[in-house]
Amino acid sequence: MANGFYLYGIFPPPGPTHLDMVGLDKQPVRLQNVDGFVFLYSEAQQDRYLASRRNLLGHAQVLEKAMVEGCRTLLPLPLNRLIVQSWDEVADQFTIPYGETLKQLFTRLEGKREVSVKVYWDEGAELETLMAENADLQAQRELLEGKKLSMEQVIAIGQSIESGLRDRQSDVMDVFRQTLNPYAIALVDSDPQTQSMIYNTAYLIPWDTEPAFSQAVEALDRQFGDRLRIRYNNFTAPYNFAQLDQLE
């Protein structure tokens, strides 16, 4: 039994002209125009959808397929952002109080796409390279082996090593920023998701410049070789640039 409507995202009119897909719980995905805004939805089969990997992927796939099928300008709603019981409720919560904000966001996103770059390194390998390139730091590190040191000495040596690793990380990040930022209309730096991740940035770029952006990422991959592992996502719904916090 349905529990209302599960909303995926919002398009400017007329929205996608053709939809042939299923969403969460294998429900058909449909469109509903409310006050000149086109909502992408399916019938909810649960009162609340957990942020499981399966649900997250299903939610994202609906958004991306809808964009691929001809309507690139999309304001994505996060998983479980809103389950509504009626379209009057949508008007009360979205289109009436935030109509002008939605129009501004559509204007900002028109003709643009979000891409993201995540960079990983091997901290152990970086540490060994740092030692090989810095004789003074290597000598300090050797003091930690087999000698009784004061707590102050141990802390000072550890801080020197950490500072050296931070400098190496900063150097890598500067190269990526200098290479990729000129393509961006806007960007969002996010915190690393793992200890090995040193760069996590989303870029808003014009659709037509993606091939050049991709080539720049490939050039960085060749430049750093095995030292880094680069994960490039060249197409996603623009979560980082929809400013949905304005709707809360």
Rank of each mutant, 00 (worst) to 15 (best):
Y6S: 03
L7T: 05
I10V: 14
P12L: 09
P13M: 08
P13F: 03
G15W: 05
T17N: 07
H18A: 11
H18L: 08
V22W: 00
G23M: 05
G23Q: 06
L24W: 01
P28M: 07
L31R: 11
V34K: 01
F37W: 01
F39T: 02
Y41N: 07
Y41P: 08
E43L: 13
E43N: 11
A44T: 04
A44M: 03
D47P: 00
D47R: 09
R48G: 00
L50W: 11
R53K: 14
G58R: 11
G58A: 10
A60Q: 14
Q61A: 08
K65Y: 07
V68P: 00
V68E: 14
R72M: 08
R72N: 06
L75C: 05
L77C: 06
R81H: 15
E89A: 09
D92E: 15
F94Y: 09
I96N: 10
Y98K: 03
Y98H: 13
Y98T: 03
T101S: 03
K103M: 04
Q104H: 09
Q104R: 13
R108E: 09
L109W: 02
G111N: 04
K112M: 08
V115P: 04
V117G: 12
D122P: 00
G124K: 12
E126G: 01
E128K: 05
T129I: 05
T129P: 00
A132T: 04
A135K: 03
L137S: 01
Q140T: 00
E142S: 07
K148W: 07
L149D: 11
E152Y: 05
Q153S: 09
S160L: 04
S163Q: 15
S163L: 11
S163H: 13
D167W: 03
R168T: 07
V172W: 05
D174Y: 01
D174C: 02
Q178E: 13
N181L: 15
Y183V: 07
A184Y: 10
I185G: 00
D189T: 13
S196I: 04
N200L: 05
T209D: 13
T209W: 03
E210L: 15
S214G: 14
V217L: 12
L220I: 10
Q223H: 15
F224W: 15
R227M: 13
I230D: 06
N233H: 02
T236Y: 01
T236S: 14
E248R: 10
